[in-house]
């Protein structure tokens, strides 16, 4: 089961939808999620929504600090970060050993 999940991640051709993957493997999506979390803990799958992922935090935190030396004015105002940053869906990707 666990290996099947990891193999799907390894051999996927292009983007896959998590609920499609659950149907393909004939597991409930929540169970699939549990297995994915197992691999995330083992460092074999990367989850974009985890706190330690560089994903969104980098965007939100970096823009204002990098701008501070410039007269970038309205481009990235306030401590809440740039208003143009969008919340993106959760992305899971295979990590090569």
């Amino acid at each position: 089961m666990l290996h099947q999940v990891l193999n799907e991640f390894k051999s996927a051709q292009g983007a896959l939808n998590l609920s499609d993957l659950a149907r393909k493997l004939k597991v409930e999506q929540s169970a699939l999620d549990g297995m994915i979390q197992f691999w995330v803990r083992k460092g074999r799958i990367e989850d974009s929504q985890l706190a330690n992922s560089p994903a969104l935090s980098a965007v939100k935190g970096a823009a204002p600090s990098a701008c501070s030396g410039l007269s970038c004015a309205g481009s990235c105002p306030g401590p809440q970060g740039c208003p143009y940053v969008m919340e993106m869906p959760r992305i899971l990707s295979y990590v090569k050993k």
Binding site: F9, L16, L18, L21, P89, R90, I91, L92, S93
Partner: peptide, 10 residues
């Protein structure tokens, strides 16, 4: 090379 990924569509 490509790195495919899986996405959770809300």
């Amino acid at each position: 090379e490509q790195t495919p990924f899986v996405m959770e569509l809300p």
